[in-house]
Design a protein around this nucleic acid. Structure first.
Length: 926
DNA sequence: CAGATCACG
DNA sequence: ACGTACGTGATCTGA
């Protein structure tokens, strides 16, 4: 067996990948899709072929075309998109990091280099594969040179292979003759002129018969059709020039050192440098290829397991005065086992239930006990040489470990993802336990989020890479799919590494994170808002909210009756049974069987979204039924049935508030999402009656009135809008009055509605198209509204334009409190992407500032309820709304706190007004 | 596991 | 000409 060489046409494959793969950006804003696609294609080929040698050829700089000496560079080939251009050096860097030989030479295209190397290597007896997206290379094909053309399809990458025989079969000519075919037919993409009037079919026929341009010319009078004959005679010069252009050089003057291109197995590509670069580009899938079981990291060699009490004491004693990192390790939580439907009694008398009595410390103590109970131990680090996991066991209960830890006297305590650890540390509803308190705690995940809020997750290995410059194995690398508890038992070494890394990274990344926060002006935001908020959120989650199981079930049963009716009727109207929940099947019924006019299409077929169906509903009764069916099944599955599954043993739902998800600084709520409980439609809104306060309590719900618009008024400093807020309650009406030049009292409902839509549009980053959609008016009319709005409030326009300009210049926008949102989309060459970036630049400072403000209010309300020794508790937040489970006798005090703290959370040019209501359930209080 | 849909601010 | 409102999460379907 001869040896095998794989040659890759660098630019061509990069280009293929770029257009075949959706735009990818890493969190630095670098475009990475072409590099990613290239690597996937390369690995696929290497795995298939297991070659002995590998080389990638590049054009020296683009554009460098063979025909440049003959033809002017014209616009037939567009200049390379910026997003692709910037990936070329990245690609080369990646290949260099992998130790892959690359070759490029002035005066030659990659084709010429590939042709030369392929032919030379064939001479030496090698089997060659040339990978390119370009069919020009087919002329190189022989029995030993295979041209491989990858195609990126939905189903993955498919590769078309051509040896000489396949070229002959598909194109009816030999590879060499393929050049002549091209010379005759030309190629606009490559600026090869060809002979006018001769296309692919004629060219192929002529060359199949005569074998070459020259021989065809020798028989030019015999050529058919006559037009070809005439034109070849007339344009023979052009044909010869085209042939030169189409011919790939196979005698390029290069020194190619085959031995330098030796590939010692695919695994030799997985170098440390390549791993680092893949991490930086955030190629998570590719990272799995790298073997990371032997980290070069020094720290891991010093991870120690401690099971002995005395040893543990020594560790904690050593913390005195040092900056320490820690991570409290938990097994499976117990309270979260919400599957069990124990005790119908829960529903009736919440006050009778253990943990839900009116003494607030009860619920806290039980949560803390639960946390301690499933605590497996604590990892503690003071740096590279000193990281321990102190394991809980019979002789050393978790409780003791935790109390030794909280009594330790470190200068500071850093961790990653603090919130779930607070209960075990005894930090619920208080801010200091032992020596550990808010002032010396540091959450590295939170800091990393502020520094780059666009990432989906902030795993410790990313923090190590970004802020310590260290490569360490990820949780999945170490534990695979094992749970923490399984790993502790079955893979103790990996487990030790994992938990110690958490503590070590928390400790070792802190300095840089702090410096970076300060440099970017977010130290105040971090210390005064995000960190304190952790405590507030932990308490809110821990409190939870009572959801009445019976009420939900009853509500669901009622829905089921109507759903069954609708289902029957829809089947009748459709004339057959089908899955109404399947947009695909529904589309077929509506738009094919019933021939309704379809409005929009999605990628996969007809759109059956509500706005499309709304337009059809007046004419087709079945459509109204489908809309109602959709509404009811949504209510039943997501809310009636869905929420019941989250009722915990204490009869309450404990959502998770995530602090590091949104790009703007808002919170999000999961498992379940309590921030999207129905409200706008009455039937759905009734679900809120199932959310009730405990015995002796009521709900007080307070929401900001148009906080985003008020933030806009303040940030823009527009006097007229500020004045509008001072004058009137009804901002939309006064906007209509000012924009349309009508006396306030004469504003019609329609005008008010329009003004309201414009106000919303402004906050979202206005576009005439968006507004026209919302109001069902023409784009032109919408544009007029916007223009008049900006005429009325000129500083708003200046402000919004300024935000876009700022984002373009700096790459990010900021809120009033310094929170950043990078806007990488603004540098895109894609119109749609760029427009999106502009809207983001306009919206984020507004939405984000509003988020900052309510966070401040939450912290203050939470702290005051505790400080004033009230029994009432903040339990929910929904972006501009706070819900307090209020002891009936504390109603006045709570109202005062909400008003003062929400109002006073920020000092704006307009007042921050709130609406507060009480009720015996969430429906009534809102 | 991605896409479509729809619930909220 | 491009083809959209900003920010989320849960459920269901059908490769």
């Amino acid at each position: 067996m001869g040896e095998k060489l794989v040659l890759i046409d660098g630019h061509s494959i990069l280009n293929r990948a770029f257009f075949g793969i959706p735009d990818l950006t890493n969190s630095e804003g670098l475009h990475t899709n072409a590099v990613y696609g290239f690597l996937n294609i390369m690995f696929k080929i290497l795995e298939e072929e297991q070659p002995d040698y590998l080389t990638v050829a590049f054009d020296v700089s683009e554009p460098t075309f063979r025909h440049k000496m003959f033809a002017e560079y014209k616009g037939t080939r567009k200049p390379m998109a910026q997003e692709l251009r910037e990936q070329v050096p990245l690609m080369k860097e990646m290949l260099k990091a992998m130790g892959v030989t690359t070759i490029e030479k002035g005066g030659y295209e990659a084709d010429d280099l590939l042709g030369t190397i392929a032919k030379q290597s064939e001479q030496k007896g090698l089997t060659v594969s040339v990978v390119s997206g370009d069919r020009d290379l087919l002329q190189l094909a022989t029995d030993h040179i295979k041209i491989r053309i990858p195609k990126t399809k939905r189903t993955g990458t498919e590769i078309e292979d051509y040896n000489a025989a396949e070229v002959q079969e598909k194109y009816q000519v030999t590879p060499i003759e393929f050049i002549d075919v091209k010379a005759l037919m030309g190629d606009t993409a490559d600026n090869i002129p060809g002979v006018p009037g001769i296309g692919e079919k004629t060219a192929t026929a002529i060359i199949a018969q005569y074998g070459s341009v020259e021989n065809a010319y020798a028989h030019v009078d015999e050529l058919k059709p006559p037009r070809a004959s005439k034109n070849l005679k007339e344009y023979y010069d052009l044909a010869q020039m085209s042939k030169t252009l189409a011919t790939i050089e196979i005698h390029a003057d290069i020194d190619y050192d085959l031995s330098g291109a030796k590939l010692n197995g695919i695994s030799s590509l997985y170098t440390e440098e390549a791993y680092l670069l893949c991490k930086r580009l955030e190629f998570k899938n590719l990272l799995n290829r790298f073997a990371v079981e032997t980290p070069k990291n020094q720290a891991a060699e010093h991870f120690k397991l401690v099971e002995d009490r005395k040893e543990a004491e020594k560790v904690f004693a050593k913390l005195r005065g040092k900056d320490c990192g820690f991570y409290i390790v938990f097994g499976d939580k117990k309270r979260d086992s919400h599957e069990e439907a124990d005790g119908q009694m829960n529903l009736f008398a919440a006050g009778d239930m253990p943990g839900a009595d009116s003494e607030p410390s009860g619920i806290v103590e039980s949560a803390e006990n639960d946390a301690v109970e499933c605590c497996l131990g604590a990892a503690i680090s003071t740096g590279e040489e000193e990281t321990f996991f102190i394991k809980a066991g019979e002789n050393l209960p978790a409780k003791q470990i935790l109390s030794m830890f909280t009594a330790s006297e470190a200068a500071s305590y850093a961790t990653l993802d603090l919130k779930p650890q607070l209960a075990a540390l005894g930090l619920l509803e208080r801010q200091v336990n032992g020596n550990i308190g808010l002032s010396n705690l540091f959450d590295g995940v939170l800091a990393a989020y502020l520094l780059n809020p666009l990432k989906n997750e902030y795993p410790y290995e990313d923090i190590a890479k970004d802020y310590m410059g260290q490569m360490i194995p990820s949780k999945a690398d170490l534990l695979g799919k094992l749970t923490i508890e399984q790993a502790m038992k079955d893979a103790p070494e990996a487990f030790l590494n994992y938990v110690c890394y958490m503590a070590y990274v928390a400790q070792a990344s802190k300095k840089t994170l702090e410096t970076d926060l300060k440099e970017e002006g977010m130290d105040h935001l971090f210390t005064e808002i995000e960190m304190p908020l952790v405590f507030t959120l932990a308490d809110m989650e821990n409190e939870g909210i009572i959801a009445c199981r019976e009420a939900l079930t009853e509500y669901g049963d009622k829905l089921a009756v109507r759903i069954a009716e609708l289902e029957k009727q829809i089947y009748e109207e459709a004339g057959e049974e089908f899955n109404i929940n399947s947009p695909k099947q529904l589309g077929v019924i509506l738009f094919e069987k019933l021939s309704m006019p379809y409005g929009k299409k999605t990628k996969t077929g007809y759109s059956t979204a509500a706005d499309v169906l709304d337009r059809l509903a007046p004419e087709y009764p079945i459509v109204s039924d489908i809309l109602e069916y959709r509404q009811l099944t949504k209510l039943k599955s997501t809310y009636a049935d869905g929420l019941v599954n989250y009722i915990a043993k204490d009869g309450r739902i404990h959502t998770s508030f995530n602090q590091t998800i949104t790009a703007t600084g808002r919170l999000s709520s999961t498992e379940p999402n309590l921030q999207n409980i129905p409200m706008r439609i009455e039937l759905g809104r009734l679900i809120r009656k199932a959310f009730v306060p405990k015995e002796g309590f009521e709900f007080m719900d307070a929401d900001y009135s148009q906080i985003e618009l008020r933030v806009l008024a303040h940030m823009s400093g527009d006097e007229k809008l500020i004045e509008a807020y001072r004058e009137a309650q009804d901002i939309h009406r006064i906007t209509a009055s000012q924009v349309f030049h009508i006396p306030f009292d004469e504003v019609t409902d329609l005008q008010r509605r329009n003004a309201k839509a414009v106000n919303f549009g402004i906050v979202y980053g206005i576009s005439s198209f968006g507004l026209s959609q919302d109001l069902s008016i023409s784009k032109k009319e919408a544009a007029e509204y916007i223009e008049r709005y900006f005429e009325t409030y000129p500083k708003i326009k200046t402000f919004l334009d300024g935000l876009v300009a700022e984002a373009k210049e700096k790459g990010y926008v900021t809120t009033m409190f310094g929170r950043r949102r990078p806007v990488p989309e603004l540098s895109s060459s894609n119109f749609m992407q760029r427009s999106f970036g502009e809207r983001v630049a306009m919206n984020s400072p507004i939405q984000g500032t509003a988020a900052d403000i309510i966070k401040i209010a939450m912290i203050r309300v939470h702290d005051r309820l505790l400080k004033e020794n009230l029994k009432s508790r903040l339990i929910l937040t929904v972006h501009d709304e706070l819900l307090v489970e209020t002891a009936i006798e504390e109603e006045d005090a709570v109202r005062k706190i909400l008003e003062e703290e929400m109002h006073g959370a920020a000092d704006l040019a307009v007042t921050l007004e709130i609406d507060a209501h009480v009720g015996k359930n969430w429906y009534e209080a809102k």
